[in-house]
């Protein structure tokens, strides 16, 4: 399989290079943090591509708050993955939440919208055949927009995330979320993002270079991979750091100083 050769630094950092029968991210929570200067949506694209690759039987439940299906379809097509086909094969479920607006008003109402979203996700998973259930990846493309949809009731969003976390232990699926770190930078106690970091097993941080803008390097990724005691056998608690350059059809990952 030439798949092994095409593994890049990001795959290794996420632990996708492990030889195991189950999906390496199964039962784990991945949090991707980015900022205005350095968007990390390419990590999300990369994970979609890897999950839907021909030699895995993964299913993705994609909860879209940021972009419509056509956007992701175009991006993934460039990366060599046809989302329409995958959708038709019941491997890619797209939940369009762009227009989700939780009812305003009374305290507790915004919970309703999130409960129904949770119901949708859960239903999608439970309708899958039994052997596929543990190969599900739930992806939420922008948590900050979930907060917006919930009228800023971040506690309900945390409740929602808790239930998504519970899915990982119930079905053994994985949860991948993206959030923007810098929107919380001004608050004295960024409780929300900290809560998310506590939930995460793998934290992927995309940051601009400390030295400023560069033509050949678009930013750096820091991947903190915590292993729970359940995932014995894999090496515990690793930190990876590398630079990236986003190209038209691919993303290059390389160690600092090894290029440009």
């Amino acid at each position: 399989m030439n798949d092994n050769q095409s593994l890049n630094l990001l795959d290794r950092a996420l632990g996708l290079d492990q030889q195991s029968r189950t999906w390496p991210l199964s039962g784990r929570v991945v949090l991707i943090e980015d900022s205005v200067e350095t968007t990390a949506s390419f990590v999300l694209h990369h994970l979609i591509k890897r999950s839907l690759s021909s030699n895995s039987s993964n299913v993705i439940v994609f909860v879209a708050f940021a972009n419509p299906f056509s956007h992701y379809d175009r991006v993934l097509r460039k990366l060599g993955c046809n989302l329409v086909t995958q959708r038709d094969n019941n491997r890619f479920f797209f939940l369009d939440m762009l227009m989700l607006q939780c009812p305003d008003g009374d305290e507790g109402k915004s919970e309703v919208g999130l409960v129904s979203l949770y119901e949708k996700i859960r239903k999608t998973i439970s309708l899958l055949p039994e052997d596929k259930k543990s190969h599900v990846t739930v992806m939420i493309d922008d948590i900050s927009l979930v907060e917006v949809a919930a009228n800023g009731a971040s506690d309900y969003v945390l409740d929602f995330l808790h239930y998504c976390h519970a899915l990982t232990s119930e079905f053994g699926c994985s949860l991948v979320t993206l959030n923007h770190k810098d929107i919380y930078s001004n608050t004295e106690m960024p409780t929300f993002i900290l809560q998310m970091e506590y939930l995460a097993d793998i934290l992927v941080k995309a940051e601009p270079l400390a030295t400023g803008l560069a033509a050949d390097v678009h930013g750096q990724l820091t991947v903190l991979n915590k292993a729970t005691s359940l995932a014995l056998g894999s090496s515990r608690n690793k930190v990876h750091n590398f630079h990236f350059k986003v190209k038209e059809n691919s993303v290059e990952y390389f160690y600092p100083g090894s290029r440009g």
Binding site: K181, S185, K205, E207, P208, L209, A210, Q220, T222, L224, K226, N237, K238, V239, N241, P256
Partner: peptide, 18 residues
């Protein structure tokens, strides 16, 4: 942790992680 990580910071982070 919130700082833009340079390499020195990274090694400290790695230590703290272990």
């Amino acid at each position: 942790i919130g700082q833009k990580g340079d390499l020195e910071n990274l090694s400290l982070l790695e230590q703290n992680f272990r």
